[in-house]
Amino acid sequence: MMNVIAGSTNFLLAEGDVDFMVHGLIKYNLFGQELWITTTHVSVLLVTISLMIFAVLVNRKIKKANIEDTPGTLQNIAELAVEMLDNMVNTIMGKKAIKYVNYIGTIFAFILFSNVSGLLGLRPPTADYGVTLPLALITFVMIQYINIKENKLGALTSLFQPIPLFFPINLIGEIATPISLSLRLFGNILSGTVMMALIYGLLPIFVKIGIPAALHIYFDLFSGAIQTYVFCMLTMVFVTDKMATEE
């Protein structure tokens, strides 16, 4: 969606009301390429900073935690979240979970905060394909690394199963993994963003009282949380799938 920034063929935006696009804020040149700092960058920065503040606060709290005190609200929330993530990774990955729980927890927190940031009036960073594709590519690299590490030469020969004629289909199947993973997250969040923009932009004023709140709960909270869960779940399932052949 690069020509969106240049604002070329956007006939809905010409109405002046409906606005859900990525906007360029600051232009700069790098090695002769014209690049933009966009609203996505700002949203990602805000999400990251809020996660960092949360992490620092929790860290200070946990270090001071005493076994005899009753834990406060913040400590309870942090313990609940960590326990939930541990359980989630453990049920899928079993013994190998301890290696992956950090990474899964990180992307879970990042995607969840990104999706929910739509509630605060930000444009969700995950509604930009430039954010979801790298996340899916990390998963892809992880899958292939585990595949080669666990199966050695079997990683290559498994592409020719059951008969060599299936090679193109197997190859497409491998490559389709990150594409479908990223498009799923992107499409869901973008459709929510577009729907909210249409409702705010096109409906008469009396419909805009109260009704958008319910829709925000569905599109931002419910859909965002489900998609976060699904992204992490599929990442774990794909990685475990490649490990399972060993045992």
């Binding site: 969606m1 020509n3 969106v4 063929t9 956007n10 809905l12 498009l183 799923r184």
Partner: peptide, 17 residues
């Protein structure tokens, strides 16, 4: 839901890019 989202992606491309 993925196949539906492919249709959605095509609709978005036709409308906005």
């Amino acid at each position: 839901e993925t196949t539906g989202l492919y249709g959605l992606a095509i609709a978005f491309i036709l409308l906005f890019a």
